[in-house]
Every structure is written in structure tokens, then in C-alpha cells.
Design a binder for these strands. Structure first.
Length: 586
RNA sequence: GGUCCCGUGGAGCAGCCUGGCCGUGCUCGCCACCCUGUCAAGGUGGAGGUCGCGGGUUCGAAUCCCGUCGGGACCGCCA
């Protein structure tokens, strides 16, 4: 038997699982040395495995174990043999789940040694993220990171059980698939056998799941990796894991019911919390009006007020001009912020302009006093209207933006989130699920100079008359605490309607044939009406585990610039690889 | 493509605004020794840094300026 095998075997318990009930048993433990406390005469160390830590004590009476314990260093992998016993009176550690017991080492074998780690393998020290990613295996050894990965697994398991019980069939779809013109940038994979052609990694299995409906699978789900080559963010990653589902002979209501049931199950089993159903629903128009965002955080107030009419023809020219130019004036009141310093207020202006707004007007109300750089331009009735519309009371700060509607909303949404966080208005432990419905069918793309799908081109319109400016889609988003979890829609299942939508999107018939012909053709062979949804599981895990960064819930993530510090990916390809693919770099 | 923040022994920070007394300080780790009930053990001593890199200003730069690299947050982008 090889030495490694001999040493690896024989474990009787997990370190973190030992309890008072195990006292008196002879145990064999394996794990990593977390901390060593050498008292000269007696040596303690904490032995860590994925379940937690337990204290090992080495007494001089056990000469072999004692000697070995003195030579141990952090992150050594060891096997410890000895009795588990209740700790002496007064030495229990209430801070540890295993704190009532310890293992009196009779034998300590070093299985492998460790260099001094580049950062402490402990929860309380958060090392530089680049360093953590380079030594991700050490970072993941930290208990809180191990816990995140195991929580992620538990959440996925609950979801799989749920959909299995509900008759959904898990079907895998291709990773090497076809690039489509709509949507995000594709990751491309050059083909060796089909030289000069490329596959695309899926942005979502959208068309395949619709084809599975045509195939008669009826209810499909998949936990699937998807790829989008767009800039990364704290809550966005190139490769992410999506819960994808599709249901035949189903409408919005069936999808809502299935998903609400799933979230109730996850929240109940993972958090032990009741989530009331049905979830709140607001239309797209309403959330944009009240929150300036299609993913509003509805856990707190500070709703936006529309003051456009107040400032039409106003003596305050900056606002009047914005209204004349077709823009809007909107704002909200931040409670208790009237006393903020000039520096803090200037910071808010900076926040607004960095989000593209022309500017930000702040007005502090303190008794009869009005503090604002533009106070002298504002008529009394305008100030009164601002107070009435925003609900700004004594000590509150009104924040107003006048600009094109989209920029105004973006700026105010950002400020609203910022103020809520700074003013401590975000309630902890509250879960505000919200369906946002009746999205516009199309939106104008300045870049492309044409109408594009708000959701995706397979989304069914609410009515058959397709007017790009006014058509609504049978599309819906699910929002949780201001994060977009995912979106879905009732799909078009009639080829003629699908063709009309392609026409409106400016996708020429031959293009549509080339890009989506397979789907249109499939729809000629008996297609059931169907609807579906997809949401980002990384984001759900992030929220459920209380992390504020998506990289923390992904085992081996990339940095914001797309580098994976552990392996160093991406790398320069060899000439041989390029030749095989028929690619020349420039 | 844009805006902002960060880069100082192995880790986390302070020092920078207002240049010199600064390779100076704090916490941890590391090494050696002491210590028989600690648990972020304690004590004594020690090692360890071209202040990300390049250029400039200056008598003098961790500190000011320009550039660059790396990391992060955000805007754009993300059907």
C-alpha cells in the first residue's frame, strides 16, 4: 500500500462534527492545522475540515504526539488518533460548535506539509481579491467560502427536487451552438472541421428549449451555464448559471405559479422563512413612473414625483428649458438629509452627473428656511408643489433632476438607491419579490438605428397590431430587493406572427431564414403555445448568502478585466492551434 | 469607450492633502527562545519593504505632476 493511501485512510469522524455525545470514543481525524497554541508543556491546535474545527491537545505524556505537535505549522495536513473527550471543567469554548470536547492526541501523522500561506486562511481577514483568486484553493478553504459553495449546492438541490416533483424534465442543450444577431455579444469558438466557421457559446438555451416544446417535452428545466461577452460588474459575470425553464400549454399565470412555488420552497428550506404569495405585480409603466427603474427596490419609499407640469414655463430657466425640449422634471425627498454638508451634497451632484444627468438640484427644507443654490430662482408656489409632490417635510432634502426622461430616471434611480443605503432605510432580512409586467415590445436603439426587442424576438406581443412605439409584450421580469433575477415571456407560436416581428426588427427574410429558419420551420410541424422563464442563479445565491459580489459565489471566477488569475487564462494560442483552425492573428 | 477609488515588508492598514525629522507607525503572520489549559493564547528577541512601474518638477518625492500596468466600483453595454 502506498504511503499516501495508508495515511489517508481510517478517518472515523469529521472534525467539525464532534459533540459531547462522542466523548469516550476513540477517533481518527484528518484535516488542516488551523491554529497552534504552544504552551511549552502542552500544545493545542485546531484541526479544520469542511465541517468546522475541533481542538486537539497534545500532552508531554504522549511523547510521540507531543513532539509531532511542536513541529506542526499552519495548513499542514495531518491525521490525529486519540480519544475524544469532554474538556476539563471551565475550559469549554462556547464559541465553537465543537467547544465542549477535544481530542487528546495519541498519535499525530503529518500527511503533507504546507508553505506559509500568502494570506491567512481565516474568515476575519479579507485579503486583496486578486491574491485570493490566484490562490483560490486557499481562499475557498476559508470557512465562509466553503460555506458559500455548500450553500450554493443546497440551493441547487432544492430547486432540482422541486422541478422534478412538478414534472419538469431536465434536458441538456448544446454548449457549441449558433451565433445569433440579437442580444449580447457572443463568445465565439472557431471550428477545426468546418474551417472558417465559428460556434457561439449560448447566451441562453432559448431556441433549444422552444424546440423541446415542439418536441412534446411539455415541461423543461435546466440549470445551465450561459455566456455573454459584456463588461463585468459586481453582480454580473461572463459565464453564469441560469435556471432555465419552459412550459407548454401555459400562460403567464402558470409560469408565475411555478416560479413562486419554487422561491417559496427555497426560502422555506434554505432560510426557514415564509414568503407570502402571490408576489406583488406592477406594470413596466408604473415602476418607471414611480421608481425610474425596471428593477426597483420596493423595500423602502422615496418614490419619484413628476414635477414636469409644475416647471413648464417656469422662471427657473434650467428646468423650463428641459421641459420645453420634451424632457421631464422628477424628484424625490430624502428624509432627514436637509442637514447634509455642502461636501456631501456636492457628492450627490457628482453622482447624478456621472450617471448622465445634466445636473441635480437639491433643496433642503428646515422649518421656514429653504436651503438650495437655486432657491432664489424658485417661486413659492413651485417650492410648495415640490413639497407636496415629493412629500418633503421639515428636515428633508428634495432631489430634483430635469433632463430627457431616460437620463432623469437613471440618475434618480441611482440616487434613490444611494440615499436609501446611506440613510439606513433598507430593512435587513426583508425579501421584496416583484413581478414587473407589460414590458414594451420594442425599444429604439440609437446605436443600431432601428427597433430592437426589449426581451427577445420570440416574445409574444400582447395584441397583434405591431406598432413599435406602443406595443406591449407578454414579457415579465422578476425583481428581488432591487435586483433583476430574471425574465421570461409567453412565446410566439405562430410562424406568420414571428415573421412579422422579424420584419419589424429589420431582420430581412433571408437573414431570418438563415438565423432562425430552423425555429420557423419547426413551428410548421405542430407547435404548442408555450411560455418560459430564466433567471440568474448566481445572483440568487448571492442574495441568499448575503454576499455583495457575484464572484464570491462562483468557485473560480474571473476579474473585471476577464482574467482568471489562478490559471492565467486567457492565453496566447500556439501557432499550431491557429493553423488547425485557419486563424491568423493581427 | 467614459468617470471615480485603490496599489506602502508575507496579510490588513496608517503615513500622501500641507515634500525634508519617512522606509516611520499599528495589528497580524513568519523565525528563535520562554511558558502545562489555551482557543485571535501570552512573554522576550529577530528577520523581512528599490512605497506597482517609468518619466518629470524640486536642493530633496511614498508624498506633487504626467504616463503606464494591475485591482475594484459605477456609467455606457448586458435580446
Amino acid at each position: 500500500m502506498a504511503e499516501g493511501e495508508r495515511l489517508a485512510g481510517g478517518r472515523t469522524d469529521m472534525c467539525g462534527a464532534l459533540r459531547a455525545a462522542d466523548a469516550g470514543r476513540e477517533v481518527v481525524l484528518t484535516g488542516w492545522v488551523a491554529r497552534r497554541r504552544d504552551h511549552g508543556g502542552v500544545v493545542f491546535f485546531d484541526l479544520r475540515d469542511r465541517e468546522g474545527v475541533v481542538q486537539v491537545v497534545a500532552h508531554p505524556g504522549e511523547a510521540g504526539a507531543y513532539g509531532a505537535a511542536q513541529g506542526l505549522r499552519g495548513e499542514f495536513v495531518v491525521r490525529v488518533t486519540g480519544p475524544c473527550r469532554v474538556r476539563p471543567e471551565g475550559t469549554a469554548n462556547a464559541n465553537l460548535p465543537t467547544g465542549e470536547v477535544e481530542v487528546a492526541a495519541r498519535r499525530i501523522e503529518v500527511i503533507s506539509e504546507s508553505l506559509t500561506p500568502p494570506f491567512p486562511v481565516e474568515d476575519r481577514v479579507e485579503a486583496d481579491e486578486n491574491l485570493r483568486l490566484k490562490y483560490r484553493y486557499l481562499d475557498l478553504r476559508r470557512p465562509e467560502m466553503t460555506r458559500v459553495l455548500r450553500d450554493r449546492h443546497r440551493i441547487f438541490a432544492i430547486i432540482r427536487r422541486y422541478f422534478d416533483e412538478r414534472g419538469f424534465v431536465d434536458v441538456e442543450t448544446p454548449m457549441l451552438t449558433k451565433s445569433t444577431p440579437e442580444g449580447a455579444r457572443d463568445f465565439l469558438v472557431p471550428s477545426r472541421l468546418q474551417r472558417g466557421k465559428v460556434y457561439a457559446l449560448p447566451q441562453s438555451p432559448q431556441q433549444f428549449k422552444q424546440l423541446l416544446m415542439v418536441a412534446g417535452l411539455d415541461r423543461y428545466y435546466q440549470i445551465v451555464r450561459c455566456f455573454r461577452d459584456e463588461d463585468l460588474r459586481a453582480d454580473r459575470h461572463w459565464e453564469f448559471t441560469q435556471l432555465d425553464l419552459e412550459m407548454s400549454f401555459a400562460s403567464e399565470e402558470d409560469v408565475f405559479e411555478a416560479l413562486e412555488g419554487m422561491f417559496v420552497r427555497v426560502w422555506t428550506e434554505f432560510l426557514g422563512l415564509e414568503v407570502p404569495t402571490p408576489f406583488a405585480r406592477l406594470t413596466y409603466d408604473e415602476v418607471m413612473r414611480r421608481y425610474g427603474s425596471d428593477k426597483p427596490d420596493v423595500r423602502y419609499g422615496m418614490e419619484l414625483a413628476d414635477l414636469t407640469e409644475t416647471f413648464r414655463g417656469s422662471g427657473f430657466r434650467a428646468f423650463a428649458r428641459a421641459v420645453e425640449g420634451g424632457g421631464v422634471v422628477k424628484g424625490f425627498a430624502a428624509p432627514g438629509a436637509a442637514s447634509w454638508s455642502r461636501k456631501e451634497l456636492d457628492g450627490l451632484v457628482q453622482e447624478a452627473t456621472s450617471r448622465g444627468a445634466a445636473g441635480l438640484v437639491w433643496i433642503g427644507f428646515a422649518g421656514t428656511e429653504v436651503h438650495s443654490p437655486v432657491a432664489r430662482f424658485l417661486a413659492d408656489e413651485e417650492l410648495a408643489a415640490i413639497r407636496a409632490a415629493t412629500g418633503a417635510g421639515d428636515g428633508d432634502l428634495a432631489l430634483l433632476v430635469a433632463d430627457r426622461e431616460d437620463r432623469t430616471n437613471v440618475a434618480l434611480d441611482g440616487l434613490r438607491r444611494l440615499m436609501a443605503a446611506r440613510l439606513g432605510l433598507v430593512p435587513e432580512g426583508t425579501w421584496a419579490f416583484l413581478w414587473v409586467t407589460e414590458f414594451p415590445m420594442f425599444e429604439w436603439s440609437d446605436d443600431e438605428g432601428k427597433w430592437v426587442s426589449t426581451h427577445h424576438p420570440f416574445t409574444s406581443p400582447a395584441t397583434e397590431d405591431l406598432a413599435p412605439e406602443t406595443s406591449r409584450a407578454r414579457a415579465y421580469d422578476l425583481v428581488l430587493n432591487g435586483f433583476e433575477l430574471g425574465s421570461g415571456s409567453v412565446r410566439i407560436h405562430r410562424p406568420e406572427l414571428q415573421s412579422s416581428v422579424f420584419d419589424l426588427l429589420g431582420i430581412a427574410r433571408p437573414d431570418a431564414e438563415e438565423k432562425f429558419g430552423h425555429l420557423l420551420e419547426a413551428f410548421r410541424y405542430g407547435v404548442p403555445p408555450h411560455a418560459g422563464f430564466a433567471f440568474g442563479l448566481d445572483r440568487v445565491v448571492m442574495l441568499l448568502t448575503g454576499r455583495d459580489n457575484i464572484r464570491d459565489v462562483i468557485a473560480f471566477p474571473k476579474t473585471a478585466s476577464g482574467i482568471e488569475p489562478l490559471t492565467g487564462a486567457p492565453s496566447v494560442p500556439s501557432q499550431e492551434q491557429l493553423d488547425l483552425l485557419g486563424i491568423r492573428l493581427r
